Structures are given as structure tokens and as C-alpha cells.
Simulated assay, not measured.
Amino acid sequence: MTRRLATTGLFVVNGAVIGVWVSQIPAIQRRFDLSSGVMGLILLCMSVAVIVVVPIAGQAVARRGSAPVAVAGGVACLVTVTLPVLAPHPVLVAAGLVLLGAASAAMDVAMNSHGVAIEAASERPVMSSLHAGWALGGAAGAAAGAAGTALGLDGAVTVALVAAALAVHLAACARHLGAGSTAEGADAPRFTLPSRGVALLAALCLLTMMTEGAMADWSGIYMDSDLGASAALAAASYAVFTGGMTVGRLVGDRINRRIGPVHLLRGGALLTAAPLAVMLLGGSAALALPCLFLVGLGVANGVPLMFSAAGRRPDTAPGPGIAAVSSTGSIGFLLGPPLIGFLAGATSLPWALGVLVPAALAVLLLAGRAAGPAPAGPLTDAAGVLGSG
């Protein structure tokens, strides 16, 4: 197993953990008879944990290196993903999500830092294909959750089986990760404010990940409560969305080399906004599934492009740079869904999800401002380099 394949395996594990969890959200909402607003508050707990832990994880990567932090975070993810599903009370669901969010945040920063090191060593774009592993894992985890629902399995049993399989996979990958980002020990820089370039990348990442988070937490509920889809079809909605992300990321590196990161980001933003608007206006489960696939295709390469740019900035170490972009993006990924819940309680879920359309259009308009003069090197092209300015 090569270093790149082993690193892709880390992304698969993290994506599958999130995928199998979100497949259980509609069932948990029904089991406790929770309103959209209350469900939003519960999901907010995971957001808080991620926002707090991501900067700490960035420092841990700078001090200890990316590989050990990534593996430790992966083990923690596999343990904590069962907690919110096993919880007998909504308060304990929230507590389980705090622990799951913390574990996922630590793994996320470390595995992206490891990916940046591999990209630098290979001297060609690879981050989209690494993130394709995350999307593939998310689709597989969500599909496993949907299959368990269709077979009548208890959600806790389904999640435990998925976690056990992922543990074997993680152990195999951990042996072949090799060297990643440098462990600086006590010489690692302390917390500092992000540079202007990193801050811009962080803002774009927030807008992009807001859509990812909303599709993760609300697409199944939208299919179930607003479109009248079956329980199995609602559980499969996130698998369809992440299927689109997987396809987009598998071809993303090749497209990046041809047209450059700015044009790729702009095209993805347009492909996000248009089918999302069609899905919300159409009001049909049959129409919603292909639209979810296209939305996944549209958002696929935004996060890999921005993480890669943050990890290559000369004025910031990879761990803290990625942590700054990741923590801000996580606000969109995890704070966005509770906001959708609050808006849905005040209006309706379709209207609440409609705010994602102008968010995608904002990425389309701001993408060019993230491009600066392209420095010489094999990772650049005539279209500019995200985050270099």
C-alpha cells in the first residue's frame, strides 16, 4: 500500500463515520419526536466541539506531526460514533455529538496536513482525489445506514457493524502512512491570527461547507417530511449527494491541471446553485435525488482546493494554516445546519434551505479574489493559485 493510498484510507474512514451518523438523524428525530428547532440545537453541540478542537488539533499536528494525530483521531471517531445512536435521551445524544465532533475535528486537520505533505512530495495536485476518499466513505457509510434501515436493523447495530469494519481498515492504513508534516515539538509556533490570504480562504470555505453540512443533516429530513419519501429513500439521500461529491473529486485533480483552481471553484459554485434551486422549487422526491447528485458534484472540489492552498502558504505552517481554514469552514458545515433548523421553524424547511443558493453564488463572485500571482512550480498554472495573494 502506497502512502497516498493509505492517506486516502484515512479520508474514507472519516467520511464513513460522518455518513453512517447522518443516516441515523431522521430516525433519531422521529424516535424522540423532536421539532426542527430542537434538532438544530442538538446538532449545534457537534459544531461547538469542532470549533473548539480544530485550532488545538492544528497545534498538535505542528508539535507531533500529522500521522500520529490522524490515527489517534480515527480511533476516537470509531469509538464515539456509536454514542449518539445509543443515547436513551436527547441530552445524551447532544453529549455524544460533542465527543464525536471533537474526534472528527482532530482527525480532519491531521489527515489534510498529511495530504498536503504528500501533494508537495508528488509535485502534482492530489487533494481532490484524497477528498474523493472522504466522499466515497460518506456515501458508503450513508448507504450502510440506509441498508440497515431497509433491513429493519436497529440503528445502534448498524453503526457498530460499520465501526468494526472501519477499525480493520484504519489499522491497515496506519502501517503505511509514512512521514507527513514535520513534527516541530516545542519549537512549533503558538496560536497567531491568520493572514489576510488565509482569512479569505476561510470565508470561502465557510460558504462552501455550509452547503455540505446542510445536505448532510437536512436532505434526509427534507425528503422525509416535505417530499413524503420512504424511510429508506430518505436515509439514502445523503448517499446520493456524496456520490456526486465522489465523482467530482475523482476527476477534480485532472480538471484542476487543465483549467486552474479559480475556474474550477467558479464552475462548482454555479453547479451547486442551479440544481439546488430546481430541487427546492420542484417539490418532488424523484426530482430531488438527481439534483442532490448534481449539488454534490458542484461542491466537490471547493474544500480540497482551499485546504491545499492553506497548507502551501509560505507564511503559515500546514497544520495551523489548515486549522484556520478548517475551523472557519466547520462553522459553516456544523453551525449552518442548526441555523437551517431555526429558519425552518420560523418559516419552512424549503425556504430555509433556499439560503444556500445565494451562498453558492457568493462563492462564484468571490473566487477570483482568492487568486494571486502564480509562483513558479509544478502545482501552478496560468489560471492562478488559490490563496497565494
Rank of each mutant, 00 (worst) to 15 (best):
Ala87Ile: 00
Ala87Met: 01
Gly368Val: 12
Gly298Cys: 12
Ala382Gly: 04
Ala132Asp: 09
Asp381Trp: 07
Ala49Gln: 15
Ala202His: 04
Gly372Asn: 09
Ile340Trp: 06
Ile255Arg: 11
Ala309Pro: 01
Thr246Asp: 03
Cys291Glu: 07
Val91Pro: 04
Ala370Lys: 12
Thr7Gln: 04
Gly101Phe: 01
Ala179Leu: 12
Leu343Thr: 08
Gly354Glu: 11
Leu92Glu: 12
Ile42Gly: 10
Leu379Glu: 08
Leu250Phe: 15
Ala72Ser: 06
Val363Met: 14
His131Leu: 15
Ala269Met: 05
Ser330Val: 10
Val20Met: 02
Met215Trp: 02
Ala376His: 14
Asp381Asn: 15
Pro318Thr: 14
Met223Trp: 10
Val162Gln: 10
Thr7Asp: 05
Val69Thr: 09
Pro337Leu: 13
Ala216His: 12
Ala352Thr: 00
Leu250Arg: 02
Val251Asn: 13
Ile42Asn: 06
Asp154Pro: 03
Pro88Ile: 05
Leu86His: 09
Ile42Phe: 01
Ser128Cys: 08
Val54Gly: 13
Leu201Gln: 12
Leu343Asn: 13
Ala67Cys: 05
Arg4Lys: 08
Ala324Arg: 00
Gly252Met: 07
Leu292Asn: 03
Ala269Tyr: 06
Met46His: 03
Leu151Pro: 00
Thr80Ile: 05
Asp217Tyr: 06
Val159Pro: 00
Leu227Asn: 00
Met210His: 10
Glu119Thr: 11
His89Trp: 12
Val54Glu: 15
Gly9Phe: 02
Asp315Glu: 15
Pro358Ser: 13
Ile340Gln: 13
Ala62Lys: 00
Ala144Gly: 08
Leu5Gly: 02
Leu78His: 12
Ile56His: 14
Ile28Cys: 11
Ile221Ser: 15
Ser219Ile: 05
Ala382Val: 02
Gly197Pro: 08
Thr82Asn: 11
Ala49Val: 03
Asp108Phe: 03
Pro304Trp: 07
Val22Ala: 07
Gly65Gln: 03
Thr242Leu: 14
Cys205Lys: 09
Ala142Pro: 02
Ser35Leu: 14
Leu365Glu: 07
Ser129Tyr: 11
Ala87Thr: 00
His131Gln: 14
Asn112Met: 04
Leu305Gly: 01
Ile221Gln: 12
Leu280Ile: 02
Ala110Val: 03
Ser66Gly: 13
Ala239Thr: 10
Pro373His: 08
Ile322Gly: 05
Val116Trp: 09
Arg313Gln: 15
Ala371Val: 13
Ile322His: 08
Leu177Gln: 08
Val126Trp: 00
Thr242Asp: 07
Val355His: 06
Ala146Lys: 01
Phe307Arg: 06
Arg30Ile: 04
Gly137Ile: 09
Val69His: 08
Leu386Val: 10
Cys173Asp: 10
Asp108Tyr: 03
Gly329Ala: 15
Leu361Asn: 12
Ala102Leu: 04
Gly311Leu: 09
Thr246His: 06
Ala135Ser: 14
Ala235Lys: 02
Ala94Arg: 14
Met1Pro: 07
Gly311Tyr: 02
Gly268Val: 05
Val12Cys: 06
Ile42Pro: 02
Gly213Ile: 10
Leu349Val: 01
Leu271Phe: 03
Thr242Cys: 10
Ile118His: 01
Val116Gly: 08
Tyr222His: 15
Ile221Tyr: 06
Asp315Val: 13
Arg190Ile: 08
Trp351Leu: 15
Phe307Gly: 10
